[in-house]
Design a protein around this nucleic acid. Sequence first.
DNA 1: ATAGGTTTTGTCAAGCTTTTGTACAT
DNA 2: ATGTACAAAAGCTTGACAAAACCTAT
Lengths: 292, 292, 292
Amino acid sequence: MTEIGLLRIGELGRRAGVSPGLLRAWERRYGLLRPTRSQGGLRLYTDDDLERVLTMQRHLADGLAAAEAAALAKRAPAEPATPSLTPADVRRALTEAFDAFDEPAAQAALDRLLAATTLETALSEVILPYLRELGERWERGEVSVAQEHFASAIVRERLLSLGRGWGRGSGPTALLACLPGERHELGLIAFGLALRSHGWRIAYFGSDTPLETLAATADFLDPAIVVVSAVSDERVSSALADLRALAARHRLALGGKAAHLAGVDELGALRLGGDPVAEAARVAATVTSYAR
Amino acid sequence: MTEIGLLRIGELGRRAGVSPGLLRAWERRYGLLRPTRSQGGLRLYTDDDLERVLTMQRHLADGLAAAEAAALAKRAPAEPATPSLTPADVRRALTEAFDAFDEPAAQAALDRLLAATTLETALSEVILPYLRELGERWERGEVSVAQEHFASAIVRERLLSLGRGWGRGSGPTALLACLPGERHELGLIAFGLALRSHGWRIAYFGSDTPLETLAATADFLDPAIVVVSAVSDERVSSALADLRALAARHRLALGGKAAHLAGVDELGALRLGGDPVAEAARVAATVTSYAR
Amino acid sequence: MTEIGLLRIGELGRRAGVSPGLLRAWERRYGLLRPTRSQGGLRLYTDDDLERVLTMQRHLADGLAAAEAAALAKRAPAEPATPSLTPADVRRALTEAFDAFDEPAAQAALDRLLAATTLETALSEVILPYLRELGERWERGEVSVAQEHFASAIVRERLLSLGRGWGRGSGPTALLACLPGERHELGLIAFGLALRSHGWRIAYFGSDTPLETLAATADFLDPAIVVVSAVSDERVSSALADLRALAARHRLALGGKAAHLAGVDELGALRLGGDPVAEAARVAATVTSYAR
DNA sequence: ATAGGTTTTGTCAAGCTTTTGTACAT
DNA sequence: ATGTACAAAAGCTTGACAAAACCTAT
């Protein structure tokens, strides 16, 4: 990446986004770095050190404690030219393939991704971030609606086919649906896949589900939870009355950006505003209620 | 499916649909079950016990006295059901499964169907007729929107996963999309699959594709044909101008019920009003041109 | 993606969706987990522990009581809720199923595989390697002929049903056959499927095709290529004369191990000695000629 | 089916320790 | 630059509690 020059602690900190004080603490406590010293005693770091600090940070972001993160970062120092499959690589491959309307290439990238990692990692590290980025590029006008359509159709198909049979089993059931008019179902599908890995059964209604019939189905299936997804606030606002009625008879949760809307907890509904994978874990733990 | 874990009396009752009290009575009176006990004395059952309870119930439903039923259930295990295989049977199985929101059963029926026949036969003999019937039942109010949603979501997933990779190859390309606002894409997918089986490449845009971007993509990909699907007449009418512009630059075809609309052939567009499988064969035979 | 770092209780809880308090209770009461401790006494967990907690949760969701769920989770670390999809896992599942003559399990594994990945990936990453391994195990006497027969019959049937209708279309045609006496057709079928996905039409003759009829058919169909598969050298040698005649009138390719034989390119035949999927891509790209 | 007692299990609190980022003094 | 200090966050242990689910006997 960079030349062989030696960095001082300030510069290293700036590049890694870590305060000098913290770098010294990491050195003292975990021996993460072993900088050489200048004539006057100043710490001098190499590019490897920078690499190690970045690795450490990645582990921290993964939720590891500092001590464990440091141990890992020390142990796996080299890791030269990552084994060809970092999340960033897959994301780049996806972007290129979709931008060129090249379905086979996209499918191949997804194949590689799913073969190399857990479904949940694939979702929260690659697929969901990619979709978020795609949405942002679309808002900035960098991507046509057609490209966005094309990409999400393929991703949706892949995810749904991973969910095939998710209604099977004997665990509690979750009823998943999008609000009327809502088209964005990918987050909801991801949530369903993650929840399934906790042993739940999924009854999935795609996008644009009318609320009366959702209510009727909920009465029929009596699920442990009804999860409704919405991206835009208006959809929720205009459905508040119906949602309240639904929440009175069933455990209700709201997913998607609209979960942050004001009136939601007055509804008595659970807010699922975060990462679908994490939220699924939370629901699995919280809603222990024995279905039926 | 379920592991051989030990069930407590509540769960056994829930699974068998028998109250705990009754289970205890059956144990006391007929010795139907001999559960082991937990440290603290709670009854623990196995899956075999569940089987025995279900058998007992079947015998009760047959009219046997409880004592006889229990004696039989203690002695003999149960026999599993054997699935049937004619198209009519599959359709019936699909109907039942979807009506009960039973995804696994529906998937199993689709599995059997696709294993037993050609994709095209499956489409035109079973799947498309089933969907047509479902639509009619919905119009007659015999089926809720939820059921229709549930069924078409599953069928759509199955069909799309069959089409995975249909963008590959060297044959002529067809660009497939639904008009803005249009949600019914199953016919279009069926058409795509059928056309694919004639060696064509498919570029697929899901439902609700804006026409400007469709046009832009068409210019980019330069497909041998652009197929646009619409069920309702209004969608077509309100898009006539754009469609005309599209038809001027590309071979255009209109699918779905709206293909029968008046203004269509004045557009210079092909009408694909019939069975998607048959129409695909026609297109494959007719539009021989432009094989890149 | 996530490295095998050690998790503290908070992070484990976050990932599994279980509160730290409950995790401690499960450890105390059922010995579900046996974390190592940090210097200062903090619990440190591995990824296996996470797996065990998820398994426990799955059993809980199934309605088992905590004690029983824990006992099961402690005993059986295997069988994750989302059947894992890495090639190695699917291969292991296939191996187990076939070794036990368990056809339903094998079909289920193939279902999952085909639902989760592209046909071509499934072929070159799982199915073909599995078959190769099976052959090797057979040579080492680790597998009976019966097992080898059982497995390849099921796989062949499955692949052939995927190829149903592959003779249709307008792309270039490939004529596929095994040499007289040759029984191994799985590689040839895989090649046909892969080539099909490039839009080609396949005319398929199973194993043991007499050369005169092959030649006659070739003259009649005038395919873009004739692909002949052979595993053993002698088969090729004893057919050299006929093959030479065939190669004089048609584009000829030789697949299977025998492709490496000496006299082959003297024949003017293409050698397809590698992975069928890759070779199909090569043929599709090379023999562009004669399209139609 | 009810009554009265027991087991199981998730949660919580109190009091104390470890871990870790940052700040301060030399 | 170094070393020490500090406080917030996260953990640990013990003990207890209450709701749900079960048990037996009537």
